[in-house]
Amino acid sequence: PVYLSVKADNSMFIGNDPVTDETMITALNALTEGKKDTTIFFRADKTVDYETLMKVMDTLHQAGYLKIGLVG
């Protein structure tokens, strides 16, 4: 499974590897070998604001990742 996490300080990680807004999709493409039907499990600290969550989800959708599971 692929886990994308947003921490309380808005830092992002794919698994244990830090990513930025600019590198997130490139890292996901490498990890999933470009398979856009891969489910991305998205988790965020409860203090992360809604705007940040939606920005990340919008970026995922624009890149073609449509299977996003929200996890606690």
Rank of each mutant, 00 (worst) to 15 (best):
P18M: 12
T59G: 06
M54Y: 08
D37I: 03
L4D: 01
D9P: 12
Y50V: 12
V19L: 03
D17V: 15
L53W: 10
P18C: 06
D21F: 15
E33L: 12
Y3V: 14
I40T: 00
G72F: 04
P1E: 10
E33Q: 14
R43E: 13
A44H: 09
F13C: 08
I68Q: 03
V19Y: 03
K46R: 11
M24W: 06
I25S: 02
P18I: 11
D49G: 14
T20F: 05
V56S: 02
D17H: 13
E51I: 12
V71S: 09
D37C: 06
N10P: 01
M24I: 13
M24Q: 00
K35G: 04
E22H: 07
K36W: 05
L53G: 01
G69K: 15
A27Y: 14
T23S: 10
L66P: 03
H61D: 03
L60D: 00
I68P: 01
T20L: 03
K36F: 08
T39N: 09
P1C: 10
L70E: 07
M24G: 00
D45M: 03
D45Y: 04
E22A: 11
Y50N: 10
P18W: 06
F41V: 13
T47N: 15
K36H: 08
A44S: 07
P18G: 04
L53D: 00
H61S: 10
R43T: 14
M57E: 02
Q62Y: 07
E33G: 15
D45F: 04
L28G: 00
T32Q: 02
G64F: 02
A30C: 06
Y3C: 09
L28T: 01
M54F: 09
V19P: 00
A30D: 12
T39C: 10
M12L: 10
V48Y: 03
G69T: 15
L66R: 09
K46W: 11
Y65R: 00
L53A: 04
G15H: 04
V48G: 03
G34Y: 06
D58W: 09
Y50F: 11
M12S: 01
M12T: 04
A44Q: 03
Y65T: 00
F41D: 03
T38M: 10
Y3G: 02
D9M: 04
H61K: 14
D17C: 10
K7S: 11
T39L: 14
D17W: 12
A63E: 07
F42G: 00
E33N: 13
L70W: 12
V6L: 13
T23N: 14
N29W: 07
T47E: 15
H61G: 06
K55L: 10
K7G: 11
S11P: 01
A63K: 02
S5F: 15
K67F: 13
K46M: 06
V56Y: 08
D37H: 07
N29Q: 07
G72L: 06
S5K: 08
T52I: 13
A63P: 01
T26L: 11
R43L: 15
L60F: 03
D17S: 12
T52A: 08
T59L: 13
L4P: 01
T20S: 09
Q62I: 07
K7D: 09
I14A: 03
K7P: 02
I40E: 00
A44M: 09
L53V: 15
S5G: 04
R43Q: 15
E51S: 12
K35D: 14
F41Q: 05
L28D: 00
D21A: 14
V19M: 03
L70F: 08
M57V: 11
A44L: 12
V48S: 05
G69A: 15
I25D: 01
M24K: 01
R43H: 15
V6E: 00
D58T: 12
A8K: 09
D37Q: 05
A63D: 04
L28F: 02
I68L: 07
A63L: 05
I40M: 02
M12N: 01
Y3I: 14
G15W: 04
S11H: 08
K55T: 08
P1N: 09
V56M: 08
L28V: 04
N10V: 03
N10S: 11
V48H: 03
P1L: 10
I40F: 02
G34W: 06
D45P: 04
L28M: 05
T26V: 13
R43M: 14
D9K: 06
I14H: 01
A27G: 04
D49T: 13
K36N: 05
D58V: 11
R43I: 15
K35M: 08
P1W: 11
M24T: 02
T32F: 05
A63H: 11
Q62C: 06
K46P: 15
G34C: 07
Y65I: 02
G64A: 02
M24V: 09
G15N: 12
F13A: 04
D58E: 09
A44P: 10
T32R: 02
T23Q: 09
A27N: 06
A30P: 01
D9H: 07
A44W: 12
T47H: 13
S5H: 15
K46L: 09
G64S: 02
T39A: 11
P1V: 15
A44R: 03
A44V: 12
D17I: 13
I40Q: 00
E22V: 10
D58N: 13
M57Y: 08
D45N: 04
F42R: 00
F42E: 00
T47L: 12
Y65W: 05
T20G: 05
N16S: 12
D37R: 03
V2N: 01
D37N: 09
T32S: 04
D21E: 15
A8S: 10
N29Y: 09
T59H: 10
P18E: 11
N29A: 07
L70C: 10
P1Y: 15
V6F: 14
D37P: 03
Q62G: 09
R43K: 11
Y3T: 11
G15P: 01
S11G: 06
L60P: 00
D21Y: 14
T59P: 01
D45L: 02
V48I: 09
V48P: 02
M57G: 02
N16T: 09
L53E: 02
I14E: 00
E51A: 13
E33S: 14
T23K: 04
T20I: 03
I14G: 01
S11F: 07
F42C: 07
I68C: 04
E33T: 08
